Amino acid sequence: MVATQAGSLNSTLNDVVWKPFSQLTHQKVRTTRWSDLTDANYSLLRSGKQNWSLVLIEDDDAETGCTEGLFLPFPATASESSNADPARCGVPALSLDYALSWDSSRFGNTPTWRDFWDVARHPGKRGLRADPRITLEIALLADGVPRDAIYNVLGSPTGLDRAFRRLAQLRPYIVWWTSPAEAMHILTKGAALMSVTPTSEIAAANAGLPTPRFRNLWFPLLRVNYDWVIPANGSRDLTSALALATWAAASQQQSALNAQLITPAPEWAQPRVGVLPPAFPLNVDFWRRNLPAIKTRFDQWLSQH
């Protein structure tokens, strides 16, 4: 059993990773949905009351869970990548780029992050992730902080206060989501005028339409890297879990996945001169050190507003 995100990501994983594995080994891969390391999922992992062989998780969560004994160390042969987690509890799985997204049938222009916050000029709800990661980076981008200074600012008490103040300005208009599938659902159902959505979900939604209507702001993109981990507790066949993880983490599967998930910017989004800058990766070391304290504050802020 593999625990992964819902939405088009699950379909892509099935086509690119699990079907070829099943054809090669004659072992059926079953999947179940989960939404990151929530309190409920943390309890499941700690108690062992699950039968997950593999879990798809953000890379900083993989490191944190490893130090807490939630995940098993991988043997060095489980990954071809030199970017595997230092503690060897996670092997690289895939990446998703998150962008400001909108329905062009409702909003004809190309908005900026300042427009995202400007509900006076552009009335309507806004979709944001119910997690400090991605959300606080975006709050600072909207407040004019250059992307290469984000973590210097966010790492100071005054900078963190600044991010929360900016977020508070938008609070009455926010529709919160907890998974890529939910982020896309907010747009397709018209629950928000703009949202933060993986570019792969936008591409998948447009592929099913006669005329593509969902668009992304292609700069800046926020890149989140994900790992495969094996729960330390639970009922699963460890040998099969390692075989599945080794297959999923192989460079061939990673390349094929990212070719599907890291969608290139369309011609209309390309600059007249030069090229678009690369996606802005979330800082794993920053969040590994600071997530517990910042998430506690974020959750308290959510409950009080």
Rank of each mutant, 00 (worst) to 15 (best):
M1S: 06
V2C: 03
L13S: 03
D15L: 13
V17H: 10
F21I: 05
F21N: 10
S22G: 08
S22C: 02
Q23K: 06
Q23A: 05
L24N: 08
L37V: 13
T38I: 07
D39S: 10
A40G: 06
N41W: 13
G48N: 07
G48A: 08
W52K: 05
S53A: 10
L54N: 00
D60Y: 15
D61C: 00
A62C: 13
A62G: 14
E68R: 15
L70D: 15
S79A: 03
E80N: 01
P86W: 15
A87I: 05
C89D: 09
V91T: 15
V91E: 10
A93I: 06
D97L: 03
Y98G: 01
A99I: 01
L100S: 00
S104A: 15
R106Y: 14
T112F: 12
T112M: 14
W117H: 11
H122P: 01
G124S: 08
K125N: 03
R126K: 05
R129S: 01
A130M: 13
D131Y: 12
P132D: 02
L140R: 10
L141N: 07
A142Q: 02
A142F: 04
A142V: 06
V145P: 07
V145R: 11
R147K: 11
D148Y: 02
A149R: 13
Y151L: 03
S156M: 13
P157F: 04
T158Y: 11
R162T: 08
A163S: 15
A163K: 05
L167K: 04
P172Q: 04
Y173H: 14
W177K: 02
T178N: 01
T178M: 03
S179Y: 11
E182N: 05
E182L: 01
I186S: 00
T197P: 00
I202S: 01
A203V: 11
N206E: 05
T211N: 11
R215D: 12
L221T: 01
V224T: 00
V229C: 11
P231M: 06
G234E: 11
S235N: 09
A241Q: 03
A241P: 01
A243I: 08
A243P: 05
W247R: 06
A248L: 04
S251G: 14
S255W: 13
A256V: 09
A256H: 09
L257M: 04
N258P: 07
A259P: 08
A259F: 12
L261Q: 02
T263H: 06
P264E: 11
A265V: 07
P266C: 02
A269Q: 06
A269N: 09
P271E: 12
R272Y: 12
V273G: 06
G274D: 10
V275A: 12
L276I: 05
A279V: 13
A279R: 14
A279E: 09
A279F: 10
P281I: 00
R288P: 00
R289K: 14
N290D: 07
L291H: 07
Q300D: 09
Q300K: 15
Q300F: 06
S303I: 04
